[in-house]
Design a binder for these strands. Structure first.
Lengths: 205, 205
DNA sequence: TATAATAGTGACAAAGGTGTCGTTTTTATT
DNA sequence: AATAAAAACGACACCTTTGTCACTATTATA
């Protein structure tokens, strides 16, 4: 006659597992990470973890959703705080440069791995589609804001430029991942992209 | 008192296996493909295949080397044949657009998968380093040729631009892989990149 | 404090793949 | 033909990971 445990408690457990998963995914990447790792990290039992997440894919997707929500907040906030949109773009490039320089304890490798390995699976494609759209919308919004403020007079439609930015950043991430940062001359490439963007956006000084 | 079989015969066998591997890697991608698949495709026995290649990684690397050699020949040849260097760049973009549009029976997914999944392994990093350098050298050569001929007056050093081109093309490949081509607006993105390149290279009309 | 619902446990069977190795077959030489 | 070197075979033992399920422990209510 009594339901067992409060919803808060269950939510707490869920968050614990997600936290452990995040740590382990960052350490090992997607494919090499096993449920065993999460189990050990949480200190729970096998069955216990499976009570909350039915497999590795489920766990990863939940974790990614959580992480993306956080990233989204940061994006909006920084866009509001910085004086000009171009300053924000500049910041965005610098941030990416930093995070691609060292993948230790970063989730980026696991994320790339997850979607690359899963490209034949409809489920992941769909998820990635939603995720992508969100990023593109954010970038498009950013460019539109620059237009409204008279900072930019882009040579191409905002949504195309938004995709271009996303593509180039992911391209740099990809190359930084499986080569060394020096070898891909990341610093110089970011600089090259900044130059190219200045032209494409026709940034007004 | 007698060595067994001619070297040519062994080489033939090796090529047979490589051919089968290429087909199967293109069909299934790197990770899902098993040695069993190659064995079935060749019609040989398990032990027979292992006599030539000691594991999947070895097999893939050999196959990739073979493929890259072919690609290299094509690159040099087309660069010589086309009237201007810019025409060659244009062709390069068009070719990439085509190949990213449909990954059916393409090795591209397997290649991306292979290097992404193996980024922690020194051996693969090294291999990819050599591979990358070759691509960058080719691109650098191409840009230098354009400079010599007075077609380009690049805003940045050739080796930086070479890396930028490689990065952007791989970025587009990556996005085309785990999203749909329409969603990433590939055609438009290639067009955007063409515009950006025209500026960065300062193509003289 | 009795109880019933359910959260949590961990041993286990099953799946799926790998590389080896004793055996058989093939083939160049004598 | 006889022979010996080695190419080719394929059954097999081994490993790693997964998801389940009969059982135990815990906890909100009556």
């Amino acid at each position: 006659m009594a339901p067992k445990v409060t919803e808060e408690h269950k939510e707490q457990r869920r968050l614990e597992i997600l936290k452990a998963a995040r740590k382990v995914f960052a350490e090992k990447g997607y494919e090499p990470m096993t449920m065993q790792d999460v189990i050990e990290e949480t200190g729970m039992s096998r069955g216990g973890v499976y009570l909350y997440f039915s497999n590795k894919e489920d766990l990863f997707m939940s974790m990614l959703e959580q992480k993306d929500d956080e990233g989204w907040d940061t994006f909006r906030q920084e866009l509001e705080e910085l004086p000009t949109v171009w300053a924000f773009v500049d910041q965005l490039l610098a941030d990416n440069e930093d995070s691609f320089n060292d993948f230790t304890d970063s989730l980026i490798p696991a994320i790339i791995e997850f979607f690359v390995a899963g490209w034949r699976e409809e489920k992941r494609m769909e998820r990635q589609g939603v995720r992508y759209q969100r990023i593109i919308d954010a970038m498009t919004h950013m460019i539109e804001l620059g237009k409204e403020r008279g900072e930019f007079r882009p040579l191409l439609p905002s949504d195309v430029l938004a995709r271009h930015i996303s593509t180039v950043l992911d391209g740099i991430a990809l190359h930084s991942l499986y080569l060394k940062a020096e070898r891909v001359m990341m610093k110089e490439q970011i600089e090259a992209f900044r130059l190219s963007l200045k032209h494409l956006l026709q940034v007004q000084e």
